[in-house]
Write a protein that binds this DNA or RNA. Structure first.
Lengths: 354, 354
DNA sequence: AGCCGCTCCCAAACCGCTTTGGATGGCGTC
DNA sequence: GACGCCATCCAAAGCGGTTTGGGAGCGGCT
């Protein structure tokens, strides 16, 4: 027969003081034992650890961080309002990667939905409140006021992407967007394509600009600049890919090569091509960028759907998180940029120009 | 000319005590003034509010919640390990919806990546630490141990979805998966389809089971049960849709109607159909479920891509968050379920059976 | 014996806020 | 003039940890 429950679920959660009392020790000693200080005897430490485990003691992070001054939390700021960046699949994968790193380091991740308009105040309050030890910024605009603001506030932060026009140096992690799209364009050029369109991401974002620059540079080098109507900007949805491609194909001299900024756009483009009675890979070639989203794979490693440049955004999240933790730990004296290359995979979606 | 900055950025953040000192008031009075108690004169309150605004004072949420006992934070638990649920686009949209509600109510949202295997301990520690006031659970399995655990721990929670086999009542928000898929199937049946396949989500999840049940019921009523090979389960990717459909079409008597559990699967299915030289909407009809993801719209409202059942998951997030806040505020004495219907839209992807 | 240095432990202050239980002074009332 | 009652304000005690600055006890050395 089981003995009667000697310890039913504690009505009051175990606190450090209670734990100390039950061990006939002072809170000081228990705290130091748990935190691995070396001025507590091995025997005592064992007793403390054992009792802590048995009672399911978990230190109150709030009290702890009030005492230490460190929040042990990283903030990811989500622009609120109509354009919820969080629903962007890229955002989700990035956050997942970063979250892994935080969890391993004992940090927690708080998502702050920043009300649109009150951004300046919002960031100020966030810094002043001490809610987080650092911030990750995403989707920066070429000149992003947040960078100046945060530098001024002295709150550690790392930017995913770059703000080309920033006046002061800062920490960032980015993919080499320009080079990736330069290379993708050169691939099409090498296949003989001369009319090449770009279905880019939203206008005004830094990465969009860099990708466009890469394409432009390749086309310029090959002396075949694209007409303005061959460059489109929009939120990266399948529908956008479909509509834009349909429109492009209706052009008098339609493009034979299409570059897209995301897999979803590429899927829309493919649908448009096929709906027009053409074949992808022969009539029209498609090269896309692949963010390596786990729920949206580009086929399989052996059999990709699209020819693609690829830089897993989960990796970016991990890199950014690691950098931020290092910055917080004051391991960096000087802003450290990190530019990650994209890989290039040839798939069935590209072929010689017709 | 601008006057010289009278107040440079404070090296020390403004605290309640400092603010009180600068006003020659006690911290008590300042606190009560800021929190709207009525035992402070209107004049004083105005002075306090003014000074707070001017100094950019933001109360330290950690200290506050240590004092009040309320964390003012809601936890969303992300199963860690290999299967990062957070990268699931459905998860992201749900969280975005919930986040709106939290932000409006002054709550923050913390994402806890729960290490796989140590779930029991993890939830216990989360509850004991007082890090959050409540939890949202997603993607429950038919008998989910977490529900029993959390009920026992006394931590308020709301489940997105249901756990059919749960022994005790609990709060949940769910879409009527069974009815939605019943209706979708009836649509195909009414069009004369008799060989109907289901590309479902992962096996073992509650919503997958409910959807399968809906389809099965419709088919049974129509006296044309599907062969076992017509029901597939997997993570909901485009590739899965493609592969599964390709396999189905190679069947001796292939299905003429395909139901899919997500838009991505449907897109894969469409690609497979077209690659097989068939037309969607005439040779093969596709009905999908549409989670209303903002970055993956089902065409437009006027021109949907697919015939679809639809229940925006962002709305679910909002509903769940509201319910949780109500539970925390002890507004509910009895567990309140909330079953949301799905809408049904006919698009070009379905037509009479060939 | 006296002193030093170690090891192990602890009392008390503090982090920044809330909340309880008065204290103070002005005013009306009898 | 004494009393009671408001309207305002505040001192101090937490909340649950960490950290500083010792202090007790003990063995070894001179």
């Amino acid at each position: 027969m089981a003995p009667p429950q000697s310890k039913p679920r504690p009505a009051q959660p175990t606190t450090l003081r209670r734990l100390a009392q039950s061990l006939a020790l002072s809170p000081t000693t228990v705290s130091r034992a748990l935190n691995g200080y070396d001025d507590v005897s091995e025997g005592t430490r064992r007793r403390v650890l054992e009792a802590a485990r048995a009672s399911g003691y978990a230190p109150n992070p709030r009290a702890r961080s009030l005492a230490t001054g460190r929040a042990m939390a990283i903030g990811h700021v989500v622009p609120g309002g109509s354009e919820h960046e969080i629903v962007n699949p890229v955002f989700a994968d990035f956050v997942a990667g970063a979250g892994e790193v935080y969890a391993a380091a004992g940090y927690e991740m708080v998502l702050s939905v920043m009300p649109e308009g009150a951004e300046d105040e919002g960031y100020r309050a966030l810094a002043q409140s001490g809610r987080v030890d650092g911030l990750i910024l995403q989707a920066p605009r070429p000149q992003d006021a947040r960078i100046t603001l945060l530098t001024e506030l002295g709150l550690p932060f790392v930017v995913h992407g770059r703000a080309s026009m920033a006046r002061s140096p800062y920490h960032w992690v980015d993919m080499d967007n320009r080079r990736a799209f330069l290379r993708a364009t050169q691939h099409l050029l090498a296949l003989g394509h001369r009319r090449i369109a770009l279905l880019n991401g939203p206008v005004g974002l830094d990465f969009s600009a860099r990708r466009a620059a890469g394409v432009e540079e390749a086309l310029l080098r090959a002396r075949c600049p694209a007409p303005p109507s061959f460059v489109c900007h929009d939120r990266m949805t399948e529908t956008y890919g479909y509509d834009a491609t349909t429109k492009l194909l209706a052009h008098g001299t339609p493009p034979t090569g299409v570059l897209t900024s995301s897999l979803l756009i590429a899927m829309g483009a493919r649908r448009a091509v096929e709906d027009a009675g053409l074949r992808v890979g022969s009539d029209v070639s498609i090269v896309t960028h692949d963010d390596g989203l786990s729920y949206l794979p580009n086929g399989t490693a052996e059999a990709p759907m699209f020819t693609a440049t690829r830089a897993p955004v989960g990796t970016m999240g991990r890199e950014a998180a690691q950098m931020l933790l290092a910055v917080i730990a004051k391991k960096h004296r000087v802003p450290t940029p990190r530019l990650l290359p994209a890989t290039f995979t040839v798939g069935p979606s590209t072929g010689p120009a017709p």
